[in-house]
Structure formats: structure tokens, C-alpha cells
């Protein structure tokens, strides 16, 4: 049975698209047929992060309006088997997505795919609600920072009240926390919220901690999902998160600093 997983956050710029690309690619690497859909109508970006921006011919809205077939709009990834991208439209019409239209496409995708990853736009308005309405599971992307944590709490409220599962009294949407841009050094100095703090406040299970890493920007520059950079800490962290999502027991890394030698510590002073 296909599963719909929505990547959401409330706040913008916390790493939803980066995470959608990495997480979806990670699922495909594990052999699951996966489709990543860009729900951010008007602000198409998943194509750039996935490196397929020059292959977009038809989009999500074209398919909803019956101007193209789903198979014409789906872009097959050239690096990873089983991975497809459904780009969004650049239209400014914010009512381009209708619940019925989205449902029809998701139903069609469900027949063919194991996982459908929905990359939500920021905010808690219609676009974000559309991305989470049909979700079976939701991954809340949060930065260890006050406004992001607050907005995550808001979006959790929206999931619990306005998703299809909530409206129809089905089993609730399964929630996961993905803590991104985590900087252990700053946490150690007491400058940044600890993972335990965020968990205590949001009270949802932790899927993964993605450390702040130069690899994320580098990967986006070249249009490669960062999970494919398996030498980078961020790439490994996404692969771990995918494994946990699939039910494997993987210990969280990046929670404690690497052991430093005596001289390192003495010389660190106020670094």
C-alpha cells in the first residue's frame, strides 16, 4: 500500500525542499519506488534541488487541468532507479490546486508508487494545507531556533485538525521530527536549543538530526540531493533518517561532540 509522506514546517527556509529531495532519494536508494511532488505552486524549486530543471515540460497543474497526462509530467531521475519528480507550476494563481484534482493525481500515483513525498510550501494557508491534507505521515522540519519551533507547533495543530485523517476520524497522521541545521558546538556553548529541548516542547518522536553542514549548499549548487554525498555528515544523517523511517533501529549521531584532545580543549578558549 502506497504511503503519502508530507514534509512540512510552517516556517520557510528551514530545509523542507532539501529534506524532501534527500529523503525521497533515500527511499528510492533503498529500493522503493518513490515520487517527490513539489506543492509550492508559483515558487518551483524542487526541480533545481534535484537537478532536473531543464527537463520540466509539463507540471502538476497541467495534469490537474487535464492538459497533460501524469506520465508526461513525471520526470525520471537519471541517477537513482525508482525515483521520479513531479514539478509544480510557476503560475501565480494560488487556487490552481483543488482538493479534488490533487486527490485524483495522488490516487493515480498510489497505484504505481510505494512512497509519495509531498514537499509543502511554507505557511499554514491553503497551499500548505493541501500538501498535508492527504498525508499518512508527516515529517516536521524544524531548526533549533525559537520561530521555527513555534511554527512547527502551529503546523502540528493544523495536521491534527485539518488533515483528511483528522476530518474523517481515521487513525491520526503519524508525526516525525526532523531537526535540521543542528550545530553541536553552539549547543555545547548554550547558544542553541538542544535536541532534547525541542523534543520536550514539541513532544513528537525524533526521526533524525541533520547537522549544519557545508555539504548541503554544495549539493544544491550542483542539483544533487545531499543524501547522494555519502561522505558528508548531512548525507549520512539523511540516510539514517530514512532507515529509521523504515523501522530500523539506528542510533542518533551528532548528539555528542567528537572527543577532543587535551590541547584542543585548552586552546579552544573563546573560539
Amino acid at each position: 500500500m502506497a504511503k503519502i509522506v508530507t514534509m512540512t514546517s510552517g516556517k520557510g527556509g528551514v530545509g523542507k525542499t532539501t529534506s524532501s529531495a534527500a529523503f525521497g532519494t533515500g527511499l528510492a536508494l533503498r529500493g522503493f519506488k518513490t515520487c517527490i511532488i513539489d506543492f509550492d505552486v508559483g515558487l518551483r524549486n524542487l526541480d533545481l534541488i534535484m537537478g532536473c530543471e531543464r527537463r520540466v515540460v509539463f507540471d502538476f497543474v497541467n495534469v490537474i487541468n487535464g492538459e497533460a497526462k501524469l506520465s508526461q509530467a513525471l520526470i525520471k531521475d537519471k541517477r537513482v532507479e525508482n525515483l521520479y519528480i513531479l514539478p509544480t507550476s510557476q503560475t501565480r494563481d494560488k487556487d490552481a490546486l483543488s482538493k479534488e484534482g490533487v486527490e485524483k493525481i495522488l490516487d493515480e500515483l498510489k497505484k504505481e508508487f510505494d512512497y509519495i513525498v509531498c514537499d509543502s510550501p511554507a505557511g499554514i494557508e491553503k497551499g500548505a494545507q493541501m500538501a498535508l491534507y492527504f498525508a499518512d505521515e508527516a515529517i516536521i522540519v524544524t531548526n533549533p531556533e525559537v520561530s521555527s519551533v513555534r511554527d512547527s507547533d502551529r503546523i502540528l495543530g493544523v495536521i491534527q485538525a485539518k488533515s483528511r485523517r483528522a476530518e474523517q476520524g481515521l487513525e491520526p497522521v503519524k508525526e516525525h521530527l526532523l531537526l535540521t541545521r543542528y550545530d553541536l558546538e553552539r549547543v555545547e556553548k548554550g547558544e542553541m536549543l538542544k535536541v532534547d529541548d525541542v523534543l520536550e516542547i514539541l513532544a513528537i518522536p525524533l526521526l533524525g538530526i541533520i547537522p549544519e553542514s557545508p555539504a548541503v549548499l554544495k549539493a544544491s549548487n550542483v542539483g544533487m540531493p545531499v543524501v547522494l554525498d555519502d561522505k558528508s555528515a548531512a548525507g549520512q544523517a539523511y540516510a539514517d533518517a530514512v532507515a529509521r523511517f523504515l523501522g530500523e533501529k539506528v542510533e542518533h549521531r551528532f548528539m555528542k561532540p567528537e572527543k577532543k584532545g587535551f590541547f584542543d580543549r585548552l586552546l579552544r578558549r573563546s573560539a
Binding site: 549547543v187 516542547i201 580543549r265 578558549r269
Partner: peptide, 29 residues
């Protein structure tokens, strides 16, 4: 580090962040 011992102790900014969040979220929830 050794030198931190001599520093003035303010409540850590992260601790303030946590406390403020807990208060505002209790209200909003």
C-alpha cells in the same frame, strides 16, 4: 575550557529560548 571558569555566568541564551517557547506555546495551544 579552563578559561570559562573565570567568565561571568549569564543564563545561557538557549535556556532563555526554551523558557520563552514553553510560555508562549502553552498560551497558544
Amino acid at each position: 575550557s579552563l578559561f570559562d571558569i573565570f567568565r561571568r555566568k549569564d543564563p545561557a541564551p538557549a535556556a532563555q529560548a526554551k523558557e520563552r517557547l514553553q510560555i508562549v506555546l502553552a498560551h497558544e495551544r
